[in-house]
C-alpha cells in the first residue's frame, strides 16, 4: 500500500507517494528526481549512495525513505550555493579527485560529513573515514589530496568555472562592425 511521505531534501519539501519499503536511494532518484546519488553495490559497502541525514552520513541503499520523514536530507545537489561550488566540490575538481565520477557524489558527501564533524582531520583520519567509499578509477591519492586541500583551504579563491552563467552578448552578423 502506497502512502504519502514528506521528505525534506536540500531544504525543499517533497511529498511523494511510495511503498513503505521504498529505500531512500530509490525515493531520491526516482520519486524526488535527484539522480546525483548513485547505486553501486546495493548492500551498503561501496558508499556511492552516501547522503547526509540530520548531520549523519548514511547509505541511502540501506535506509527506508519512510524513516527520514521530518529529517534534513542533504544530497550532492544541495552543496553548490548561488552558482558557487562547495569547497569540497571545487577541491575535487582542482585536484582531479575523480575520473568516471560515479562514486564522486558519495565521496564528496562522505568528506563533507567528516569535515562538518572534524574540520581539521589528519591524513590517517581521512583515510580511515573515507575507506567506506570505494573508487575503482583513482587509486584514492587524488581524493585524499582533495579532501586535505579542502580542509586546509588550499583551493583557489578566484576559481572560475566556465559553466558559470554569463550574459550572452548579442553578436552582429556583420563581422566588420563587431568590436
Amino acid at each position: 500500500m502506497k502512502r504519502f511521505v514528506a521528505l525534506k531534501v536540500n531544504g525543499e519539501e517533497y511529498d511523494i507517494d511510495i511503498e513503505p519499503n521504498r529505500l531512500l536511494l530509490h525515493a531520491l532518484r526516482e520519486d524526488v528526481g535527484l539522480t546525483g546519488t548513485k547505486e553501486g553495490c546495493s548492500i551498503g559497502v561501496c558508499g556511492a549512495c552516501s547522503v547526509i541525514v540530520d548531520g549523519k552520513l548514511v547509505s541511502s541503499c540501506l535506509t527506508l525513505a519512510l524513516a527520514c520523514q521530518g529529517k534534513e536530507i542533504t544530497t550532492i545537489e544541495g552543496l553548490a550555493k548561488d552558482g558557487r561550488l562547495h569547497p569540497l566540490q571545487q577541491a575535487f575538481l582542482e585536484y582531479g579527485g575523480f575520473q568516471c565520477g560515479v562514486c564522486t557524489p558519495g565521496q564528496i558527501m562522505a568528506a563533507k560529513a567528516l569535515l562538518d564533524a572534524n574540520p581539521n582531520p589528519t591524513e590517517e583520519e581521512v583515510k580511515e573515514w573515507m575507506s567506506g567509499n570505494l573508487c575503482r578509477c583513482t587509486g584514492y591519492y587524488k581524493i585524499l589530496e582533495a579532501v586535505m586541500a579542502a580542509a586546509h583551504n588550499k583551493i583557489s579563491s578566484d576559481f572560475q568555472v566556465k559553466h558559470e552563467r554569463k550574459t550572452a552578448k548579442i553578436q552582429s552578423l556583420n563581422v566588420y562592425k563587431d568590436s
Binding site: L34, T35, G36, T37, K38, T75, I76, E77, L79, A80, L85, Q89, Q90, F92, L93, E94, G96, F98, G101, V102, T104, P105, I108, V161, K162, H163
Partner: peptide, 15 residues
C-alpha cells in the same frame, strides 16, 4: 580541470 568535471562534482552528469 576535466572538461566534464563540473557536471561530475555536482551530481549533474547523466549516467
Amino acid at each position: 580541470n576535466r572538461v566534464e568535471g563540473y557536471d561530475k562534482v555536482t551530481g549533474g552528469a547523466k549516467y
